[in-house]
């Protein structure tokens, strides 16, 4: 349920943001974008194009080497996030789900994992417990409570990772490659989960290279080129029909193959639904 007045609220405002690792390894070049409350935004690009870096910048984990970023109307600088109260206020509103759940699961048990965020953001203990229970029941992982997170299966790990952010109840969700390395069933469950988040009015920013999920997770798509720049923007339908742009960003490639006797060529995206007709 999206309310129009909310849509006008600007959440992130990035202006020519660049970032380089160790001051020389460029990961993001002059990115400008605006994200409004309740928006469903996808950041599309190949591996290493800078979309993960952008999510980390939006989450206040990295700081732009040049350019400015404002979040909730406030400038996002290292100083702001070093201030305890302001950092807490920001972190309570924004949650990042990492691509690799192994990265995110560092606690000894699932319960510790799910309580980590509310506990560390200073919520009173009864509320921490209540939120953790709620998050676990929503993802149906109560029976994993005492398990060691890194010994779970891939799908279970992803659920725990989601629950660990869900217990924070952030209004802005940053998802890095949410469907990567998930089996089809877990994938569709995850898409349901994202859809539910969006329905409740959360802002969801999904970084992905999976063209198949674009329409399900986004109303608006931003495309990154391989040299770390934003090269296009549009609705999922517009982006998906722009073969030239997709090919340029290395998201699809010419594909030559045989169907019985017929050999032909067409643009092909890995993991993209493979549908086409043959003219006899």
């Amino acid at each position: 349920m999206k309310i129009d007045t909310e849509k006008s609220t600007v959440i992130f405002e990035a202006e020519r943001v660049s970032f380089a690792y160790n001051n020389h390894q460029v990961a993001l070049q002059d990115a400008s974008l605006t994200v409004r409350a309740g928006e469903r935004l996808a950041i599309l690009g190949t591996n290493g194009c800078g979309k993960s870096t952008l999510l980390k910048i939006l989450d206040g984990l990295y700081f732009p080497t040049s350019g400015t970023l404002r979040a909730f109307g406030e400038p996002m600088t290292e100083e702001v996030l070093l201030d305890g109260a302001r950092a807490y206020a920001f972190r309570r509103r924004v949650g990042l789900v990492f691509q690799d759940p192994d990265v995110q699961l560092f606690s000894p048990t699932v319960w510790d994992e799910v309580t980590f965020a509310p506990l560390h953001l200073g919520l009173p203990h009864p509320e921490v417990i209540e939120r953790a229970e709620w998050a676990m029941s929503l993802l149906d992982i109560q029976k994993l409570r005492d398990r060691v997170p890194h010994r779970l299966s891939g799908g279970e790990k992803k659920k725990v990772a989601l629950a660990s952010v869900l217990s924070l109840r952030p209004e802005v969700w940053l998802l890095d490659e949410p469907t990567a390395s998930l089996d089809p069933r877990s994938q569709s469950r995850l898409l349901d989960f994202i859809w539910e988040l969006e329905r409740e009015g959360n802002t969801v920013i999904t970084a992905t290279n999976d063209l198949a999920i674009l329409e399900e997770v986004a109303d608006r798509v931003i495309i990154f080129s391989e040299d770390h720049q934003i090269v296009g923007e549009g609705s999922p339908q517009e982006v998906l029909s722009n073969y030239e742009l997709l090919a340029k960003c290395n998201l699809i490639h010419e594909h030559r193959h045989k169907h019985g006797e017929i050999e032909h060529e067409h643009p092909h995206a890995h993991r993209y639904t493979h549908e086409h007709k043959h003219e006899k």
């Binding site: 972190r91 990492f98 995110q104 560092f106 965020a117 560390h120 417990i129």
Partner: peptide, 22 residues
């Protein structure tokens, strides 16, 4: 690389150098 990301993941969820437990 993993430890780098783990730290970021902890930070993202409110870790600021001291740990809390129930």
């Amino acid at each position: 690389a993993l430890s780098d990301d783990v730290y970021l993941a902890m930070q993202s969820r409110g870790f600021r150098g001291d740990s809390h437990v129930m």
